[in-house]
Design a protein around this nucleic acid. Structure first.
Lengths: 214, 214
DNA sequence: GCAAATACCTACCGAGTGGTAGGCGACAAC
DNA sequence: GTTGTCGCCTACCACTCGGTAGGTATTTGC
């Protein structure tokens, strides 16, 4: 299938001005989104300002608001964009026959060279635990999906005797996700120190999987 | 040993006005700190405003700044306060002969009825991964200490054959901390749904410990 | 009861916030 | 090449931010 362009992935059904029709506009929208990722990653949604994002993207802040009518709309676009990019790599791995959890670990591995992305999800996922947060539903659904999928995978394995004794699929599923999340914080903190001491997120996740699978 | 009073724990060496000398002031300071915990917990450090905190604490915002000269100073006081309260319960458990990891799980258990505290640490620990954040050093040190202590405990056990085969102490130590952190996010999100579906953080941590210890 | 320190207020500051109004030039379909 | 759309700008809005100035009232040690 033809790969979706960034613009197609980013622009929902045209709201207000029919956005995404001119090439120039599409390019600028992508640029804004990539800049917004950096900003939200650094100081979270609350902490980031449209003026800072727009300046870094080389546009005035009303110019930004022309493309994304509100700050929340920009956040939504950022999350959709990330979901598309990440989901695609994961699905490709899976289609190639890669094991579900191995594909999960590969996401972690890829993220280890994309600090802003890690910062983004670390910052937003905790911020968004407040029900009023514009990304609350996004993360709520995201965790539901992740836990459900992982539980299914583990349940399948359990039936084939592929689980270590005493391991409960639903509990282990949640723990994998939690482990990946929690490691992000320590990984980000370890960026201060020497590279040799940097936390290896993927290795930790693999070690956990080795404990529960057999 | 005599328990430190809240005020003694909270007020550092007198800076500017010699704070903590009047009973009224000490009481108000505690009130402000407790309100600040709620505010920082809900919207993070960046998201919280001194005006909101001060209003909820029944004081004007310059009144608040009389007690804590800057917003960062207030944050510092909040973190010190929480460290004192939490650390005390942990040390009491340990002094009573409770196992290190069991004492750790009990912290998690206690936290399961103190949502604001969980929100606070979840929000701040990710926010503070940025080196410029006023709480950066606090969390950096905190994780160092936690990982070091846990690694020591696991290494001791390893020597006595108390570890499951293939478990590496340093890696497992980091994983425990990461798991506790990551579970907080899912626990907070599960607050939306029915009580029966609420994530049991302590049970998950216990299950992990059961995997690595023997 | 007096003096000194503390507690806390109103008023204000400059800077920054998300968002709006209205214009103007570049673009693309016809 | 005209016409309607789109991209993006300057100027402005009301509001909020952390912090300061300078005052009054309360509390405390003596």
């Amino acid at each position: 299938m033809p790969a979706k362009t960034t613009a197609e992935a980013v622009n929902g059904p045209a709201v207000g001005p029919a956005r995404g029709r001119y090439a120039k506009g599409r390019a600028k929208r992508s640029e804004i989104i990539e800049t917004a990722i950096l900003a939200f990653a650094e100081v979270g949604y609350h902490g980031a300002s449209l003026r800072d994002i727009s300046a870094r993207a080389g546009i005035s802040h009303p110019g930004l608001l022309h493309h994304f009518p509100t700050k929340a709309a920009l956040l939504e676009a950022v999350l959709e964009y990330r979901d598309t990019v990440d989901g695609e790599a994961f699905r490709e791995d899976r289609a190639r026959g890669t094991d579900y959890f191995e594909a999960l670990v590969r996401i972690v591995e890829r993220n280890q060279v994309r600090r802003p992305l890690v910062e983004l999800f670390a910052a937003l996922s905790t911020e968004a635990t407040t029900p009023e947060h514009p990304a609350h539903e996004f993360f709520s659904r995201r965790y539901d999906r992740l836990v459900r999928e992982s539980t299914e995978q583990l349940t399948e394995r359990a039936a084939g005797g592929g689980l270590a004794p005493g391991v409960e699929p639903a509990q282990a599923a949640r723990s994998i996700i939690a482990l990946m999340d929690g490691l992000q914080v320590q990984w980000l903190l370890s960026f201060d120190g020497p590279r040799s001491e940097r936390v290896d997120m993927a290795a930790h996740v693999r070690a956990y999987l080795a404990l529960i699978l057999r």
